[in-house]
Amino acid sequence: MPSLPSDVEAFPIAVDEQELERLAHRLAVTRWPDPETDPDQGPELERIRALCEHWATAYDWRRCEKEINDIGSFRTVLDGVGVHFLHARSPEPGAMPLLLCHGWPGSVLEFRHLVGPLTDPVAHGGRAEDAFHVVIPSMPGFGFSDKPTSTGWGVSRIADAWIELMDRLGYREWGAQGGDWGSAVVEAISRKAPERLLGMHVNLPLVFPTAQEIEEATPDEQRMLSKAQHYRSVLDGYSREQATRPQSIGYSLADSPVGLAAWIYTLFQDVTDSDGDPEAVVPRDEILDDVMMYWLPNAGPSSARLYWEARHEQTGAPEQNPVPAGFSIFPGEAVQASRRWIEKRYSHVLHYRRLDRGGHFAALEQPVVLTEEIRTTFRSLRRG
């Protein structure tokens, strides 16, 4: 790693052992709810009890902590808020800078399995010309970033902060990738700084069909619409709660590790491509790593406020996006889009592919596939 800018500091994560002991105690004295009366009511009691038993007796945070620090853990202040980010530079001299943007309930650890193949493709069976320098920031209110103390930290302001971060790290032109809220941030960056953004790739397209498109939908597009409707009518209760009363659920997320784990696990169960068994596609320890990124810094309440912030942001009808873009559509994702819907909104579609497996947490569920999707998207945009 070259010398750090003066306003960026190394920030190794080192959680006090007493914090881990307090967590173990809280888990041990949990008051459990009655069992569900129908499996459609949320994660089953026995499933969450098994998860938390493992958390209390076998899970190793120090392993995860070391992994974060080994990637490269840093901190800087952006727009008055301290931001934690991972930064791994490639050994390849022609590497392209790439910003990776997480969502909720994800974290910088979503991309843990992508960092090696993206930064050092030769060591992972790839080609040197596909190398990237990767920057993975934790959104304000998430993970080990600071929590905003006033309103206004919505998608637009986060996009401004990430543009400043890349500039501070010395990257004048770069690519960006995201899913979930990361897709929204990447989209906002593409509108704010198209001259800086070489290209973008998302695995959750922010494409919402018009009434005419819905009326004219093909059978395949109708299946996409049906999947999105099922999500909105059955699975998005967490979203409505966090968009309207984030502080109400915040007390539970701050005080109960089991409550936080169940709140997050619900998403892993509902929107992974796993037939309701998320641990079949994402290892249990990695799910708990993600939960810990919310528990340890008490980021459950502050991260939930992003939904409230987004609900209050002013957004107009955007014009067609000129930034070169790639789209990967995973079958387990709730929000999907056809190529023809996308091409009406993006003038330069570099790549579009429907995948056979994978869901909302594509970087965790299908890291090899997503890595290749990113490489394919940016291949034609490299200089020289």
Rank of each mutant, 00 (worst) to 15 (best):
V122M: 15
A95Y: 00
W153R: 13
M292K: 12
V122T: 12
R31K: 08
R26K: 15
L169F: 01
H312T: 07
S6H: 15
E53F: 12
G182K: 02
K66Q: 08
R127P: 10
V258L: 07
P205N: 07
R340D: 05
H348T: 06
V335W: 10
H348V: 07
D34T: 15
F74M: 14
E36S: 10
T57C: 10
V8E: 02
V271C: 02
L86N: 06
W341C: 08
K147L: 06
K192W: 06
V349T: 01
G316C: 05
G300V: 04
I214Y: 11
T272A: 09
A24G: 05
A159I: 11
R223E: 10
L109D: 08
D289N: 15
A159Q: 14
E44G: 10
G178S: 04
Y251V: 04
A243G: 12
A24D: 01
W308N: 12
P121V: 06
V81E: 08
Q247T: 11
T376A: 15
D220C: 13
L169N: 04
P301H: 10
Y265S: 13
L306S: 02
P324M: 03
D167K: 15
D70R: 10
H54C: 03
A280F: 02
R191F: 07
D167I: 06
P117A: 06
L225H: 05
V81F: 00
R47H: 11
R379N: 03
G154E: 05
